[in-house]
Amino acid sequence: MTSALSLDNLSKTLPVGRTLFGAAKASVKAVHPITLAVEPNETLGIVGESGCGKSTLARMLVGLLEPTTGTIEIEGAALDNADPAEFGKRIQYVFQDPISSLNPRKTIRQIMEAPLKRLHRMGRAERDMRIAEIFASVNLREEFLERYPHEFSGGQAQRIGIARALAANARILILDEPVSALDVSVQAQVLNLLADLKREFDLTYLFISHDLAVVEAVSDRIAVLYFGSVVELGPAEKVFAHPHHPYTKLLAESAPVVGRPLTAPEAKGTELPNPLDPPPGCAFAARCPYATDRCRSEVPKLAETTAKTSVACFHPLVGSLG
């Protein structure tokens, strides 16, 4: 079975600063080469803190940003031109801030019709029917169509954003922190809705978030991102319960959990390396309590440790913890 989404050596280097004549002064490797595959119907969770490159990665996957190296294959077909319209029929995006992802000067109907008109060239009657269908699936009333974005709450606006992504008939959805801007009680509603839609429409999700518990609750597999690279990839129920990479362990132990006493986990400082001057070896070496000389000079590659888990570490933590 072909993967829903297949990344091969995908990376992105961004220029930084400008000389007098427009050339780039320096560059930052926002995303180091990533190779991974997302299976159909799975939810792959992507977890990372600020500066890990998850937003850059997400934008590349929908064609909003052209990769520096590597290819993206969607359902087996290679798409190597950064043309969002081509991508839009197969893979869609749900944005973090629901209100600012809707044009404040357009009605909901106009927003919903855009992908139907442009990507699928549907006629009026067809569009109306399809919009009614989608709205029913996301539990929105049809009278909302004539209103403007500012009239909606965060949760409703996010459902509109999801409806828009579905309207394009894409089978793969990139969800970029889809519930981070929502209140906790509304988060649960939207997460449940996403699970229902996935079942109903046979979708594949890439769920990006910084909230470990949320990612764990919705994902089949989880990829942990640090400083632009995947450091661990494994089944959701194992990744945080039995972390293999020291960074994953640090994350899991830092998250405030009811019942766990408050102790700052052992880590030397909380500073990311300077992206303009990255260290020669493993990016986490400076903070890692297990780092050796080899870690500081060589970059570890993502390799399988057990049947389903891959780690990018020279001294992965095997054996159970906590």
Binding site: S153, G155, D183, V184, S185, V186, Q187, A188, Q189, L191, N192, A195, L212, A213, V214, E216, A217, V218, S219, D220, A236, E237, F240, A241, A252, A255, V257, V258
Partner: peptide, 24 residues
């Protein structure tokens, strides 16, 4: 009670959350 129930906890595994209907 419902607020606590609808927040996912690390270690709870993949599951459906008990959402609170409606809005404040």
């Amino acid at each position: 009670a419902r607020l606590m129930a609808c927040v996912p906890e690390l270690g709870g595994g993949k599951r459906r959350l008990e959402a609170i209907p409606g809005l404040p």
